[in-house]
């Protein structure tokens, strides 16, 4: 399986990173990517993607939202959980 293409490697990339591929397939990907600057660049940006989006969407709860929720919960918890 040394003739693995970039396209096939991309198809298998998540399974590769999750460790669910057979050893033979994994090794064929390692061989291809090791000698392919395009795949090396692609894999780096693919791996970077979740982190960039995670950091960019790490919203903090606004103070007024927090206050309103806690007031709501204080009222709620005066009642019994079973309606």
């Amino acid at each position: 399986m040394s003739d693995l293409t970039c396209a096939r490697g991309v198809d298998l990339l998540m399974d590769y990173l999750e460790g669910v591929l057979s050893v033979a397939v994994k090794e064929s990907i390692d061989r291809h990517v090791g000698g392919c600057p395009r795949c090396l660049a692609f894999v780096a940006s693919y791996r970077e993607t979740p982190r960039v989006l995670r950091d960019a969407t790490a919203e903090e709860i606004p103070a007024d939202t927090k206050r309103r929720l806690e007031k709501f919960v204080r009222e709620l918890s005066k009642r019994s959980p079973e309606r």
Partner: peptide
């Protein structure tokens, strides 16, 4: 089945943030 883009254009996003 080879990437149509060059390594440079494939990795433009490094250090985007």
């Amino acid at each position: 089945g080879t990437h149509a883009d060059t390594p440079e254009t494939l990795s433009r996003m490094s250090h985007l943030d």
